[in-house]
Design a protein around this nucleic acid. Structure first.
Lengths: 235, 235
DNA sequence: TGTACATCAGTGAACGCGCGTTCACTGATGTAC
DNA sequence: TGTACATCAGTGAACGCGCGTTCACTGATGTAC
């Protein structure tokens, strides 16, 4: 019977999700290195070996957490961009930045798992690559769209780009932001690292004691960076 | 006898240093969370409890590693700045950036300890604050010097700064970069986070598969950022 | 210079705890005829 | 609809390992008179 087969499968799916949820909550208290299958099993009310019916090893559970994390962040970024009028390029950039920051502040331990110190002894498998770049794909689309609309014009004189570097930048980002000139690609990359640098500083406590509220400083920072990239409002 | 007293003290100092060295090497294989007093003792050829003659707890050893790390990075940055003619502001900024990146790439696990995910359960004591900002102090001095020399002029029109934010920025950074206007302070902060964002991406593997050699992209990035801050070459 | 005492480094055993993973097993759920 | 068989989830014990920290102790080094 298909119905009963799905019944068992549904329970399985539910328990799998529950395991992942508990593991995610464990990140908060013990960090990625301290993620423990035994502790998860304890909280599930199961014997520790039972977890192995769902995940073949600790690292597989970690991989699931990482993929879920990238997907959650990626979705947040995609939603933020989709909610902004497509021809308002500086606003789209700002929306993406805020989505990243908001998600990171709401999920600091997952953020640490994705963008903090690598977990010792853990090697991320291939499956993480797709989800990993969802946010960057959105950013690339913004630059591409702006370029097509003639709204990507750096205010400052473009720095001359070394020929080899330009070729490499073009090749690496051709699919991510087609049509965007190398100088803009590299400016974009600088802005992108600034975004994650800020968020990491904030989440990891490096900014403590600087501002009472980091929000306005962040806002100003991304406005300046948007101008540096050359994103302008057409019309 | 003073001579013999210092003999015993010298041995003590030597062993203390050896413990720290071994602990630092352990960071590379097991990360900050996996730092183990027992493993250190084993490598020292000591019984595990003997370590407690030198460090009252695991966290104290960790604190020493952190302070040493900040000092090593800070010294590298200070040396790099000191080796550059004081009136060549863009070059000083570039020197600082390269010092940070070079140090981080040479000591990735210490860098992770300082700028990666916080160690779960560990709370950094007050003593870390001084060493923690040595690099930022150098950066602040560059901006201050440039401002005084009239070489801090953003190419792009300065973004208007919200009054409250300007006041907070001025207050927070008055001692770090005296005389620097709020807009420049905030631009500087954006560039600073970009620097650490880039280095973190590189050290933590986020940039893997982008460039064959990250160096030229980094160079270009910091040149663009230097222009964004407004650092110019006087004369 | 010699002796009595205090300081200090290092030992070894113990406490109480944690972990990932394997394996033979029971009993329930689902499938095919 | 009923029965025989296969699949699967969860058990409980075990292997072999790790950790931080405490404590009473021995023996060497340093100090004061």
């Amino acid at each position: 019977m298909t119905a009963s087969r799905t019944a068992r499968e549904r329970v399985r799916a539910e328990l799998t999700r529950e395991i992942v949820d508990i593991a995610r909550r464990q990140l908060a208290t013990d960090g990625a290195g301290g993620l423990s299958l035994r502790a998860v099993a304890r909280e599930m009310g199961m014997v520790s070996s039972a977890i192995y019916r769902y995940f073949p090893s600790r690292d597989d559970l970690l991989t699931t957490l990482i993929i879920d994390g990238y997907n959650a962040l990626g979705e947040a970024v995609e939603r933020a961009d989709a909610a902004t009028p497509p021809d308002r390029f500086p606003a789209r950039w700002a929306a993406v930045c805020h989505a990243v920051r908001d998600w990171a502040l709401a999920h600091p331990h997952e953020y640490a798992l994705l963008y903090g110190s690598p977990v010792p002894g853990y090697q991320a498998p291939q499956d993480t690559i797709g989800p990993r770049v969802r946010d960057l794909v959105v950013f690339g689309r913004i630059l591409s769209d702006a370029q097509r609309a003639g709204a990507l014009t750096p205010a400052a004189a473009p720095a001359e780009v070394d020929a080899g570097l330009a070729a490499e930048a073009e090749a690496s980002f051709a699919d991510l932001m087609p049509g965007v000139p190398p100088d803009a690609v590299l400016r974009g990359l600088a802005a992108w690292t600034s975004l994650y640098g800020w968020v990491s500083f904030e989440v990891f406590g490096q900014l403590k004691g600087t501002f009472q509220d980091n929000g306005p400083g962040f806002d100003h920072s991304i406005r300046v960076l948007g101008a540096m990239i050359g994103l302008t409002q057409p019309g």
